[in-house]
């Protein structure tokens, strides 16, 4: 474990806590894409299949349980909670996320480190995570009013993967034959998808304005 990875995990943890806090306290999910949340729940379900069979550390297991629990409870809140679901903007959250799942699954079947069920599902979760933010970014472009918490959520979600890239660089130089192109490329693509969001987020922070993305 290195500082970049710990910072990345904490940033990721913080992003889901910010979102859960927003939904749980103000009972609103305005501006949040249910499709992205569903994709993330699928990402964690596919990635943590071996949570009980392959023990790595207490930290690893606890964090996996937190990510699984938080992503599924966010989906539950947005789908079934009688107050929260009313603030879900389903007319705007129209990204056909099923069109993301199949290509990622096919790609995982073609390009993976080992052709086993667990490994293909793990690779699928990497590819899916890289594009999971798209419905949320599309929704942000559409809804003019990006409230602070949603903006912070997306920012933290992007920052965590950027920190993971630093972690991979660090591990590449400190651990012999630590080479995982699949992880690196999908992590890089994921972070690049946030590039314009980061730009506008930084601009709004610098000019102390409300965050708004160009149409």
């Amino acid at each position: 474990m290195n500082i970049f990875r710990l910072a990345g995990d904490m940033t990721h943890l913080f992003s889901v806590l910010v979102l859960l806090l927003k939904i749980h306290t103000i009972k609103s999910c305005a501006g949040v894409s249910l499709k992205t949340q569903e994709l993330y729940a699928l990402v964690f379900a596919a990635r943590y299949l071996d949570i009980f069979t392959n023990y790595i550390s207490l930290y690893n297991t606890v964090m996996k349980l937190i990510f699984l629990g938080s992503s599924f409870s966010i989906v539950w809140y947005m789908r079934y909670h009688k107050i929260v679901r009313r603030s879900y903007d389903k007319d705007q959250d129209t990204f056909r996320h099923y069109f993301l799942i199949l290509p990622c699954l096919l790609l995982a079947l073609l390009i993976n480190e080992k052709f086993t069920f667990k490994e293909v599902m793990w690779t699928f979760s990497l590819y899916l995570e890289a594009v999971a933010i798209l419905p949320q970014l599309v929704l942000l472009q559409r809804t003019r009013n990006i409230d602070n918490l949603t903006g912070q959520y997306v920012f933290l979600l992007g920052a965590y993967r950027a920190l993971y890239i630093l972690n991979w660089v660090y591990r590449y130089f400190t651990e012999p034959h630590f080479v995982h192109w699949i992880t690196w490329v999908s992590g890089l693509v994921q972070t690049l998808l946030y590039a314009d969001f980061f730009y506008y987020y930084f601009q709004s922070w610098k000019n102390n304005q409300k965050l708004h993305l160009p149409a």
Partner: peptide, 10 residues
């Protein structure tokens, strides 16, 4: 089977 190292990440 020895889990490849990369899967020690979240």
């Amino acid at each position: 089977d020895e889990q490849p190292k990369s899967h020690d990440e979240l």
